[in-house]
Design a binder for these strands. Sequence first.
DNA 1: CGTCGGGTGCTTTTT
DNA 2: GCACCCGACG
Length: 816
Amino acid sequence: MTTLFGPDQTTANGVSGAPVIVQESGRERGSGYSRSSLLDGLNPQQLEAVEYRGQALLIIAGAGSGKTSVLTRRVASLLESREAWPSQILAITFTNKAAAEMRERVVALVGDHARGMWISTFHSACVRILRAEAERAGLSSTFSIYDSSDTRVTLKRIIKGLDADTLGFTPANVSAKISKLKNELADVDSYARNANMSDPQEVMFVEIFRQYTQRLRAASALDFDDLIGETVYLFRAFPRVAALYRRRFRHVLVDEYQDTNHAQYALVRELTRPVDAELADELEAQGLHVRNVQDSTGAIPGASLTVVGDSDQSIYAFRGADIRNISEFERDFPGAKVVLLEQNYRSTQNILSAANAVIGNNFDRKEKKLWTAGGDGEKIVGFTGYSGHDEAQFVADEIEALHQAGTDYRDIAVFYRTNAQTRALEEILVRAAVPYRVVGGTKFYERAEIKDAMAYLIAVANPDDELALRRILNTPKRGIGPATETQLGSFAADNGISYRQAMRDAAALGLGPKVTNAILQLARLLDEAALMLDPASPAGAASVSDVLTFLLEGSTLLSVLRSSRDPQDEARAENIEELVAQTKDFTRENPDAGLVDFLTQVSLVAAADDLDDASGTVSLMTLHTAKGLEYNAVFLTGVEEGLLPHQMSAHEPGGPAEERRLFYVGITRAKKRLYLSLAMTRAQFGDINVAMPSRYLQEIPADLIDWRQSPGMANSRGGTQSRALNARRDGYGKREQQGLPPAPKPKTEWANRVTAQVRDNGDLTLEPGDRIRHVDFGDGRVNQVTGEGTKRIAHVLFDSAGAKKLLIKIAPIEKL
DNA sequence: CGTCGGGTGCTTTTT
DNA sequence: GCACCCGACG
């Protein structure tokens, strides 16, 4: 990704020779500044947010208030007016995708010379700093980055070794606690100092934490939280290193500030501190030009800080995000300017009214009301299904209706609270032949075969990484079992050598010749691959894809999958080939980047990053992933008690309020049409539970929602449901409350009932004119058949259920 | 050492 | 309704 390691991006030290010309805030703009194009179409508040110059600026940006536009224009205006060089700008976004988009937009405004900016996520920026300063931080510059599953595996081994599971420790709860501590910038020692060591539970936790820290260090690995924390430690321990970056970045901008945690806050503070005169002179003496940024006392003033956020969209408290970072910004940065953006350019007034009504139920918030000049628009559509499948069928039908009416699939999104909800949705969407994509979820890089292939690369890049080595030791199967794996580990520990070295010395273990050979062969393979990257060797300077291909061939990982008789292995082989293709793309896009750069990029991709705008498909994603995105039509599914708000949030302080913000985020993603749907029963853990409408639904004024099938209407359909479902709530079931008979049942009420059974019609062939019978939709006539092979789709006009598209292979149909 | 089968426990959201 | 863990067997 060009965002991270563009060839023209140099490290903080690398640009030291460039002349630095900075105009202090408040001065006249340069003459080349074309004010009009940059400021076109901005409202007065936006204008102020773009043009304000001062130490600290807080932009409170309501959903859809043109925040990205303001941020990019602010950066562009700094560049255009020559107040800053591109290299003096650091902009932090939440995802790589947002970073790429921002870079693109700034380049579009001011041209190519803007490329030297750092626009990246907190994590990417920290990795860059840490790799550049690795030596001083006592790290290997090729350190591995452990994701949550790596952390889990490591903790699992530690817990097992300590028999700590008997005390109730699980990888999940320990990693959550460690993460929380690291977000507060605590480490083992600082934690242990304040721990109650008479509590055996505490003692054990400290021991687990200590071993975890040691293992990561031994493996030259950092987890996600370390990336931020270690950078803060680095700056605090080495003021001279910090000074380099403080001198370099004169303008720091942080997006989604409401979701920053304490460590990220501390990092921002470190970056925006002044450099005292003495240190500044020292930098000058080293040949770094500081004269132009020094003030009259010789010090370098702190960088200007711009943060953008909306506390109503703070949805990451569970991950340590601290809403106080934004609510106390003015206290933290005295004299800070605050600009409030309330005008919404995204949604219709009906959608905004619903959003305002919902979020108004959270106390402790700054009053803020979104408004639009764009008109009321369509009503919100509500639907209650009998089951999750029923709900999904509604979604599929409406998507088709929207598509027929001219809405592109790519302009439609389906949101849900938990990933588990995708199952029913996917089943129905596949059957209805709606093209869709699940954003995030089981990510490409989380697939086992991809992690295997990546582990080979990691083992080459970072020979200390025992986790990666142990993962590939017996993948593909080489007859090296758990016993041998452990033996290698103890051999390494006993002799004070690395796991990798133990593998090279495997002959000394006295194992069978077959096993010994297998280990030695793997060790040799990795050494040879490392040589391909060693500039000192004749084979050096190989590309990432060359190395990967070499490793795949030498390990037979790919050929084993190809010749397997397990049909799933074919897909796995294809995935690995896709990975090879990605390494080639990577090298083409970043000719100067190497293996470590590739690994870094892969480690830091977020769910939202793999969103492909060009794909003509409906997007499915969690509400969390949806933040920052917008769609013409949004389906917000599973609006039920226990799901939204989620069961788990009930016991946490601030839980229900955060869930409400999540609902608010979901609502405000919709530009034109919003659908709220729920089900009366939902499958969970394999069995079926009764669900109740979410409390948040009541908070939306009833006249904003057009219930196609309300919870009340659904209830009236016979008394088979539990009492809980009959509990009447305000805002729906109005007819019953007024003593009216239930509204006439729309035909969808029965047509939407769908069986979840999966079937296979083999190579059933259908042709236009054929009559068929569908388990749920009844009889119908085939109008048209499209698609190839297993993806053949029948376009059927049912006698009573209307027009549907069906995937012939799996639809519950028979030919009449 | 590898494979298969049955039991268990689990899911909130993610850089 | 799945993934993972463990134990039995080849």
